[in-house]
Amino acid sequence: MKNNPYQPLNAEIVDIIDESALIKTFVVTPDETFRFRTGQFVELTLPGEGEAPFTPSSSPADTEKMEFTIMKAGSVTSLLHNCDKGQKVGIRGPFGNGYPLDDFAGKDVYIVGGGVGLAPIRSLFLSLLDRIKDFNSVVCRFGAKTPKDFIYKDSLFGPWQKLDGVDMKLTADEADSNWEYNVGLVTNILSEDDVDIKNAVVVVCGPPIMMKFVTFQLVEFGFPDSAIYLSMEKNMSCGIGKCGHCMIGKYYVCKDGPVFTYDQIKAYPNIWD
């Protein structure tokens, strides 16, 4: 059937990369060219089992394959973690708005991420690198529970530390003696002097509790609510603004989001839960 938004495109898992104890990156090749904007999400189906929403962690410039970095958290993700290369899957989408990169041009881009929240951020980061001259600066503040819980270790602890135009700081809530970066929550490594608050946008993605306290701290620093971009994790299902599961107030996260500025959603109840 043509134009059936519930019909996934057939795809295959061609590689699986272990990131941490609970997180793996799945490299997926769709049967047809699949384009998305960074920050948009797709519904990944394990045929016969279930479907869940994920934002690709790969660059949209790569139209041959996509990567999804997935934490084992629920039924579908647990089954995915048991899959091997060659597993057939389905993808629907892309859905939602994504990050408005053109609006970021000429500004300091301040990226605060935590845990598996680095997955969408990696896609954003790679997209920013492709046109790094368009931005005043790219300032990253990433955190994880322990050094082992960081994903993309090879990039983060290596080449991403030495990129021109990128200021990167890492922190672990708890560290061992080999850890050469900061220790403590990600809020501890945020500073009012990191970027020019009057000419900056902030992108926040991580567990709800981290996003909540980071947002409060950013507001205290003086960032306008409209400059704080939040990637909201809700129960997106249909992807097309109909089934109702992902509503935040009048918004469907799947259609109007998943990226919202804080001023759009702050008046609605229980946004961090």
């Binding site: 519930y6 996934p8 016969g48 934490m71 629920g74 709800p208 129960n235 229980n270």
Partner: peptide, 27 residues
């Protein structure tokens, strides 16, 4: 074959808005 079904749901159901990580805005 494998099927994807569409079935009536209810926002009055406890798990309706919950996510895999355990968060649920309307517990």
């Amino acid at each position: 074959y494998f099927a994807k079904m569409k079935m009536w749901d209810s926002c009055m159901r406890m798990a309706y808005a919950g996510v895999a990580g355990g968060a649920n805005p309307r517990k």
